[in-house]
Each structure stands twice: as C-alpha cells, then as structure tokens.
C-alpha cells in the first residue's frame, strides 16, 4: 500500500493516499460537488486539466483548482458544494 496522509475536507478528518490530486481526495471522501452554480445546482470537476474551473475550492484558505493541486499532510480543503 502506498503511504497515506491526514487532511481535512469540509471540517472532516480523512486519510488519503499521498500524491493524489485535491479533486481526487474530495471525490474519495464522497463529496459530490465542489461548487454550486448561480441556480444552486451542484458542479464538480469536468476537464481534469485546469481549464473549466469547476473544481475550484479553498486550500488552506486560498482559492485553488482541485485538479491541479496535490494533497499535502495537514491540508485543509473547503468546498462550496
């Protein structure tokens, strides 16, 4: 098994494999949406490559694209879903 690290997603402690993307960690934690559109509908990662901005979340207080950022120990991820 690859090493796991501890992070927080929407205030919940989770352990994920080191080296995965923030977007993958969010999906693994069972969080379906990373944001809501103006009509309140859920949205989540789509392009996987930093183009669509659907996966944007807050990582340690800063806006980041979940598909581009990698998890790091102790990271605090907050979605808008």
């Amino acid at each position: 098994m690859s090493a796991t690290i501890a992070i927080r997603i929407d205030g919940r402690d989770v352990r994920v494999a080191a080296g995965i993307s923030v977007a993958a960690a969010i999906a693994q934690a069972g969080v379906v949406a990373t944001r809501r559109d103006v009509a309140g509908e859920p949205r989540a990662a789509c392009c996987g490559m930093g183009v669509c901005f659907e996966c944007r979340v807050r990582v340690d207080g800063e806006e980041a694209l979940g598909c581009m950022a990698r998890v790091a120990p102790g990271m605090e991820i907050v979605t808008d879903g």
Binding site: A24, G48, C67
Partner: peptide, 15 residues
C-alpha cells in the same frame, strides 16, 4: 466529464 478529462483525473487518483 471530458473523456481525456476523466482519464487524467483517474491518473491522479479520482476513484
């Protein structure tokens, strides 16, 4: 998703 989109997400750990 996009097709390559889901592929690259999966490569980076998307379940």
């Amino acid at each position: 998703f996009g097709a390559g989109g889901l592929q690259v997400l999966a490569k980076n750990g998307w379940p």
